[in-house]
């Protein structure tokens, strides 16, 4: 029972982590939380579903969904945030909230509000080891998330473009002086963040159904996970996501399922009370 719950927690947690990584990346670039992050995830998921329902194989749908999300990320940066960034913080906040509503409403019009079955990319069989039942889904989700996040870490620390993205996000003027094309790097940051969100959504939907309102809950948990681990910190996002997933699973199993979504925020408040920078960050950044 406990092991089972921890495994569930890890599965959900690694998905929150995948979402949180995107939140944290964009935060570094924009200096603010992107309130449309969850909605980009949802749109990527539904675009995948649409292609699957049209009869395309799942992997084609996934590829198209992820690419569309990345394009949406590019557009968000290029068409809206880049213009707003130079005015004020409040405008930036309202801009991402606004985009979030537009995407959600458009999605309701296009795809309706009822939950829809979503195909899984993993086999449905159960692996039983003694009393434990492990789904290939769980293992697949955890592995894919870990591989992606480790890969990103490698990309940001070892690959030149990745390093330049980090520089451009943490010190745009300094990076520009060194010859980094800061505009392109910011563009890329949004694209990658959005693509990760779509991948997360595509792995979440088979477990929860694809639904337009998935963006709100998952989006908030992504924020919570990113902040819990230390905003702007890649490993923090991973750690934050996993902790949230596990706390949520144990809380609903041993306390009450009614508070499932509240557990994340309770743990977030406790951590921030003790360590305002989040678990892995050293100093408070004066951005918000």
């Amino acid at each position: 029972m406990l092991f089972q719950q921890i495994l569930n927690g890890l599965t959900n947690g690694s998905l929150y982590a995948l979402m949180a990584v995107g939140v944290t990346m964009v935060y570094k670039s924009l200096g603010m939380l992107n309130f449309a992050h969850g909605d980009i995830m949802m749109v990527g998921t539904f675009i995948t579903l649409t292609f699957v329902l049209m009869g395309y194989p799942l992997y084609v749908g996934i590829a198209l969904g992820v690419i569309s999300a990345a394009i949406l990320g590019f557009l968000l940066e290029r068409a809206i945030l880049r213009k707003v960034k130079f005015t004020s913080f409040v405008n930036l906040l309202i801009a991402t909230v606004g985009v979030s509503y537009v995407l959600r409403n458009a999605a309701m019009v296009i795809w309706g509000t009822s939950p829809q079955l979503f195909p899984s990319m993993f086999p449905e069989t159960l692996i039983e080891i003694g009393n434990f039942r492990i789904t290939p889904q769980s293992i697949g989700v955890i592995l894919i998330s870990l591989v992606i996040i480790t890969g990103l870490h490698f990309f940001f620390t070892k690959v030149k473009i990745g390093k330049c993205m980090q520089l451009a996000n943490s010190d745009p003027e300094g990076a520009a002086m060194m010859g980094v094309n800061v505009t392109h790097m910011r563009f890329l940051t949004f694209g990658i963040s959005a693509a990760l969100a779509a991948i997360a959504g595509i792995m979440i939907a088979p477990m929860t159904y694809a639904r337009v309102d998935m963006s709100a809950t998952i989006g908030m948990k992504a924020f919570a996970a990113a902040i819990l681990g230390g905003i702007g910190n890649l490993w923090g996002a991973l750690l934050g996501g996993i902790i949230l997933g596990i706390v949520e699973a144990l809380g609903s199993a041993y306390i009450s399922t009614a508070y499932r979504d509240a557990f994340s925020f309770i743990i977030l408040f406790i951590v921030l009370f003790v360590k305002p920078t989040g678990l892995l960050n050293k100093k408070i950044e004066n951005k918000l």
Binding site: L167, S170, E173, G174, G179
Partner: peptide, 19 residues
């Protein structure tokens, strides 16, 4: 002081060679 504060000294020098 326009160096990159969160990468190593060595890496700061490397960044000079990037472009």
């Amino acid at each position: 002081r326009k160096i990159f504060i969160d990468v190593s000294v060595e890496e700061n020098l490397n960044i000079g060679t990037f472009f």
